[in-house]
């Protein structure tokens, strides 16, 4: 008999707790809605439906690199951002102001506590990555999710700008990117030349195609990517080191974490040095992961530096 009594008293505690909870939320909700003024909001349609977001968001948290890049480019420095690599922090190419943005975990595992502590008024995320967190994030602030980081990056830039209430800003940024491409193409007469971005992956060699971020930027600057059947539906393709000669192009760019360390060139490439006369190491922190208008400009700056040097 004794255990049963304990059990029932425990239930009463739970019930009391539940009532208190209800009372608390009851008290909480009116105060919550009072702070949001209906006049100052816009409706944004996104991967999870439609959300009313502040017309002029002040405290934005972003969970995706392309959103961070776009927000900084638009002059809306977020109060918090998820990063790809916590040890490396916010990418250096975004500038000094971005370096002070608080990190809220990694892009794949954002920290909801830290996001709530920042008291944001708008949260941007990605359905394909943060789907499980939507309800939690929506409890903190209006939350807008783009579909997938794998969609064309310029579309994601436009989506982010729309969520931030600055659609014109996105067009300006993307036009500036296109202008810079044209400038480089003209100055260095890149038309007709081929360029291939190569990413070493422990013996294997990954080639990036024209639909990848870096590949599309090279094509934007006038280069063509050497033809492959795979480009019809792949953004990159893995190559056996036995087939390294298929990576040949007029300009070959090899990504690395340290551009000054020639030992990061894979042996398959260095053993065939004759076949790769114009080969350069480039920083993967923006060539691969710097998706966005600022990253695009950084890639183009780097490309111009390389073209001017050779």
């Amino acid at each position: 008999m004794r255990p049963r009594r304990t059990r029932s008293s425990r239930w009463s505690v739970v019930a009391a707790g539940a009532v208190t909870c209800l009372a608390l939320t009851g008290c909480g909700n009116p105060a919550d809605s009072a702070s949001t003024d209906a006049d100052d909001t816009r409706d944004v349609t996104h991967a999870r439906g439609e959300s009313a977001v502040p017309a002029d968001p002040q405290r934005v948290v972003v969970l995706e690199p392309v959103q961070l890049d776009t927000a900084v480019a638009l002059g809306v420095t977020p109060v918090g951002t998820a990063v790809l690599n916590e040890a490396a922090g916010v990418p250096a190419y975004l500038g000094d102001e971005a370096a002070d943005i608080e990190m809220v975990g990694t892009v794949t595992e954002p920290d909801v506590d830290r996001i709530a502590a920042l008291r944001p008024d708008l949260i941007l995320g990605t359905e394909s990555r943060h789907s499980a967190l939507y309800d939690q994030l929506a409890d903190v602030a209006p939350t807008v999710f783009m579909d997938s980081q794998a969609d064309p990056w310029q579309d994601n830039v436009r989506f982010t700008a729309e969520a931030l209430g600055d659609t014109d800003g996105a067009d300006e940024l993307l036009d500036a990117y296109q202008d810079r491409c044209d400038e480089i193409a003209e100055e260095h007469d890149t038309a007709g030349g081929s360029a291939q971005l190569v990413r070493p992956r422990d013996g294997l060699i990954t080639l990036y195609g024209p639909t990848s971020f870096a590949g599309s930027t090279l094509e934007c600057a006038g280069f063509t990517t050497p033809e492959r059947a795979e480009w019809a539906d792949e953004i990159s393709v893995d190559l056996s080191p036995e087939r390294v000669l298929e990576a040949q192009a007029d300009l070959v760019l090899v990504t690395t974490t340290d551009v000054d360390d020639p030992s990061t060139i894979p042996t398959a490439l260095s053993a065939n040095a004759d076949a790769f006369p114009d080969l350069h190491l480039v920083d993967q922190s923006f060539w691969i992961t710097g998706v966005g208008p600022l990253g695009g400009q950084a890639v183009l700056d780097d490309l111009e530096r390389i073209l001017s040097g050779s």
């Binding site: 422990d202 013996g203 056996s240 080191p241």
Partner: peptide, 17 residues
């Protein structure tokens, strides 16, 4: 992430290169 990518290949066990 960089170490992760390297370890993924190494951990699979391979004779490539």
């Amino acid at each position: 992430p960089d170490a992760f990518e390297r370890m993924l290949t190494w951990h699979a066990g391979s004779l490539i290169d």
